[in-house]
Design a protein around this nucleic acid. Structure first.
Lengths: 237, 237
DNA sequence: ACCTCTAAGTTAGCTACCTAACAGAGTTGG
DNA sequence: CCAACTCTGTTAGGTAGCTAACTTAGAGGT
């Protein structure tokens, strides 16, 4: 259990709580492992539990319609929490949340967390800041989806994922990336091949390795840099 | 001044406050008229004042980069407030906010509003619900920008604007719509002509009239309906 | 009545990306 | 070791919407 000593808490929101706040929540936090592809929440479903990802885990927030495949509007790792919107005053979520990089998280009942949130302390403030950061991510994605090429978007996306996991290698197929980006699988294959030929990444049958972040940053559209800067400013990285 | 009697308050957040809350804020609220094209906030600028639009006024939230023109990620009318993110724990905004339909709003110092927000009453809860609603709007726009045609997006956008103003007619040029949608002006002109020929709208030199909402709803992508439903659920319309 | 501006109509040519295949290569399981 | 499956490579053909013009038409000012 990553509890008790603050240094061992792998989630940044939990790590930022006061001792008293943490002690109130600790008895209710339960370490859970989240496997690849798990759908934690789905559109308009009620949220009963909230998850604080550790720094090996990544969740994707997706938006959809009845006729379209769902596409990603943002990702959350150990800098935030999954299911945040249950704290904003409504019990359902407008997003599907998918475990993109498997790992562990601390799970808590929504009602318990809401009670602590209502106290208005550090938890409250951190959650609102995180919400703000995630909002900027979604906003920038809206622009990016409209104006930027598959190549720029793919590089941005890889950097965003890489920032949130411990390893340079993670499980990822072209098909999955295409679905997240709302692009065609063949377009992603062509683009990924280009990026691989440039030596920035290597991949094979669902395992992707980041080799050259600088190269990816040059390939990415500006959105990566913009969102990263805002995250730093808002969350005091 | 739309003060004192609750029935006269044209902004839904203010109208939903308790009598005590409203009385605390009232001395600090100042009615202001906002003219077309005013930029209330710009990227990464500090927010000193927050605005509660009356139901004749509409603000656009834009996202941008250095190299691209700014595009819209959502709109806010009398259901919300402009400058909400100053309440989420950081003084700057990631959005440019532009007055799209001119009208009036109640203006208040950010510091005063923040103090009331921290009390944790109705204002607090309403602002968070509004934030949630706006988040769903931005998320859906991210999908819409990626997957839907100019025609669907334009119809969606017209309905979204129309929902938030009193009149069927409002000032709007093709060029402006194109910039909001992140589309080309000529594409918008072609599409607008089609919609006009169908009898759903009429326009001339910057004045647009909505003639047939049902027609527009048929032309729009699903995003309009989805976001409208979520707004109703979240804000209890 | 004329000039100037801004809004909207229109067109030709281009391109990034999509759709829809099929092929090959690695991986897993019986 | 073979079958079945998953992941990636690749290609041909189509198209929505872009770029970049030029044209036409109201509206306002002098």
């Amino acid at each position: 259990m990553s509890k008790n000593r603050n240094g061992q808490i792998k989630n940044r929101i939990l790590a930022g709580l006061t001792h008293e706040e943490y002690e109130r929540l600790a008895p209710h936090l339960q370490e859970t492992s989240l496997s690849l592809g798990t759908i934690l929440y789905d559109f308009d479903e009620p949220i009963t539990h909230v998850y604080f990802p550790n720094n090996d885990t990544l969740g994707s927030l997706l938006t959809g319609t009845e006729h379209d495949a769902a596409i990603e509007i943002g990702v959350t790792g150990s800098e935030g929490l999954l299911g945040f919107c249950v704290l904003l005053g409504i019990e359902t979520t407008p997003h599907r949340v998918l475990i993109q990089i498997p790992g562990t998280a601390l799970k808590i009942k929504a009602a318990v967390l809401r009670r602590e949130f209502r106290q208005g302390g550090r938890l409250h403030d951190s959650v609102l800041k995180f919400t703000h950061a995630l909002f900027t991510q979604a906003s920038q994605t809206a622009l990016c989806n409209r104006l930027h090429s598959v190549e720029g978007r793919l590089a941005r996306w890889l950097l965003t994922v890489h920032d949130r996991v411990e390893s340079d290698q993670f499980p990822l197929t072209h098909d999955f990336m295409a679905r997240m980006l709302g692009a065609n699988r063949s377009s992603v294959s062509l683009t990924a091949a280009t990026i691989q030929q440039a030596g920035y990444i290597r991949y094979s049958r669902g395992k992707l390795t980041v080799l050259d972040r600088e190269g990816l940053e040059d390939t990415s559209c500006d959105c990566y840099r913009i969102v990263k800067k805002r995250y730093e400013d808002i969350l005091n990285y």
